[in-house]
Design a protein around this nucleic acid. Structure first.
Length: 510
RNA sequence: CGGGCUGUAGCGCAGUUGGUAGCGCGCAUCGUUCGGGACGAUGAGGUCGUGGGUUCGACUCCCGCCAGCCCGACCA
């Protein structure tokens, strides 16, 4: 008899969304907390997601003219001090290396010795150390542009961490480019924002809004910060990627200068852009349900899992042989330029237990193969985006020949679901009290799912910033972005009543 | 860095007015099961965070330290 709960994940999303998130990560075996404070261990299933993200983006970066390189983990403290806003933005969350040797003290404990003349900072981001190289590499306009990306880890000493969304150490890519003109740098900034949007939509099946950050939210030291913002299933926003136009700020700080065609000395124009393992958090909170993770097919470590069912050794031999054959046939099919990724799970554990593990891990397609199916030359197939019970027999050759169509259909289905959710939770406000009401949970002690994306007119006048921010802080709401490519008629600021033609998307955020 | 809390088996937790430890899950073996998360039996696994004090005796009482969690301020 089964005592299993109605859903594989306890609590459900409506019961306790933050706890549900943690439980999905655990149930899907994506990651776990590490003994190192604020850091996580990314387990194979989680890391495979990251590898797939890397693979797709890396190819795209190269297609858009970039190359990879690698710069040091440790940054001399003085480098970080070069750009004032940058210092202010990151100083509070930097880990500092002050010693280079350990000596055995009493009780066998190790004591740091050999204090460094100049401490090192563990990179929270690499603008400054990369800038130092660029300064050496650039002399002439002929040396530009420099279009480099690096895949790396960075560290920000966060007070509160959550797996994938905010960890002290995280993996990311950071692109750093230097250009001869502002226009070219701006074009680069926008191009990479478009790449991120493309990736979110096409691969993550995660709808995003492209926009510009308000001055209060932009990257420290940037002239403009652009972002892609996604809505999670609880209506909160996730900043899923950023692209910064840095103007000449960092070039001046690092001394990246060149002689232009007229022979005049000029500072370069730089950009930086990045996405991180946070995307995996976004993936989880965009698609998963109360039975665990749902992975969009295009990023799935395995597209199909074959689940053999048998009672004795004789059946086992036959069923496994059949499974191997199906596996081979599936692997002969191509999806998004790669072979279909098939797992044959022949582990000696109970069938029900095994099936549920794969449901919780979010494998797009599960195909059970027992003696009865084999007899009929068919498989009993379930899709992760449909109900758990919603399984049906499919003939082997049909299964193999339609697999890519089914995966594509799932991919589309996931995107459309997420888009529908975002649209249902997006509202335009012209009245502050309505806005406040929308963002105020009924149960303050344990907020239920509420709010979403609120569009409203917003005064860009710096003199109003404090008033607006105080009101937003009260509601725990932040301006997410000024959506790009939208022409809105003039209106009145929701907070100050001043005339403005800027509309901002507001939301609670991760 | 302020306020609160917790450290006992791999994980989650009980426990003791002071007498050297137990439950659930998980794990192993065997049996019965098996196309929706099995059940039973047996078994392995702990210097009770750490240093000191009180005591015939400390997981329990006292003091220090360390670590972690939660709530604030901060955040890819």
């Amino acid at each position: 008899m089964s005592k299993a709960p109605q859903s594989a994940i306890t609590p459900t999303r409506t019961e306790d969304y933050p706890e549900w998130y943690q439980q999905v990560i655990k149930a899907a075996d994506l990651a776990e907390n590490s003994p190192t404070r604020g850091c996580m261990v990314i387990k194979p299933w989680g890391y495979a997601l990251w590898e797939n993200i890397q693979q797709v983006l890396d190819r795209k970066f190269k297609e858009t003219g970039h190359v990879n390189a690698y710069f040091p983990l440790l940054i001399p403290k003085s480098f970080l001090e070069q750009e004032a806003e940058h210092v202010e933005g990151f100083a509070k969350e930097c880990a500092v290396v002050t010693h280079h040797r350990l000596e055995a003290g009493k009780d066998g404990k190790l004591i740091p010795a050999g204090e460094l003349e100049e401490p090192f900072i563990i990179r929270p981001t690499s603008e400054t150390i990369i800038g130092a190289s660029y300064a050496k590499w650039v002399q002439s306009y002929r040396d530009l542009p420099i279009l480099i990306n690096q895949w790396a880890n960075v560290m920000r000493w966060e007070m509160r961490t959550r797996m994938f969304l905010r960890t002290a150490e995280f993996l990311w890519q950071e692109g750093h480019t230097a250009h001869a003109t502002a226009a070219e740098a701006v074009e680069e900034t926008m191009q990479m924002l478009d790449v991120y949007e493309w990736f979110a939509h096409e691969y993550m099946a995660m709808p995003v809004i492209k926009g510009e950050k308000t001055p209060g939210e932009k990257f420290p030291g940037a002239v403009n910060t652009y972002t892609i913002e996604a809505m999670m299933q609880d209506g909160k926003a996730l900043q899923a990627g950023t692209s910064h136009f840095l103007g000449q700020n960092f070039a001046k700080a690092s001394g990246i200068r060149f002689q232009n065609q007229q022979g005049a000395d000029e500072f370069a124009w730089t950009t930086s852009w990045g996405v991180s393992t946070r995307l995996i958090g976004g993936l989880i909170m965009t698609h998963s349900d109360d039975d665990g993770l749902i992975v969009p097919p295009r990023l799935a470590p395995k597209h199909v899992v074959l689940l053999p069912i048998y009672r004795n050794d004789e059946e086992k031999t036959q069923v496994l042989e059949y499974c191997h054959r199906v596996k081979k046939e599936l692997e002969g099919q191509t999806y998004m330029g790669d072979k279909i990724r098939v797992e044959l799970d022949a582990r000696d554990i109970r069938g029900g237990e095994k099936t549920w593990q794969h449901i919780k891990k979010g494998t797009p397609i599960r195909a059970e193969v027992g003696p009865r199916d084999m007899q009929a030359d068919s498989l009993f197939v379930g899709r992760r985006d449909l109900g758990v019970k919603d399984k049906k027999g499919v003939g082997r050759s049909e299964f193999v020949s339609t697999i890519t169509n089914v995966l594509d259909e799932m991919q589309k289905n996931l995107f459309n679901r997420a888009l529908a959710l975002r649209e249902s939770r997006t509202q335009t406000f012209t009245d502050l009290s309505e806005f406040s009401k929308w963002f105020t949970p009924k149960n303050d002690a344990k907020p239920e799912i509420h709010g979403g994306f609120a569009r409203a007119y917003w005064s860009a006048d710096p003199a109003d910033a404090k008033l607006i921010n105080d009101k937003l802080a009260e509601l725990k709401v932040t301006p997410r972005c000024i959506p790009l490519g939208e022409k809105v008629p003039p209106g009145k600021c929701l907070f100050t009543g001043k005339p403005t033609s800027t509309q901002v998307i507001f939301a609670k955020n991760y």
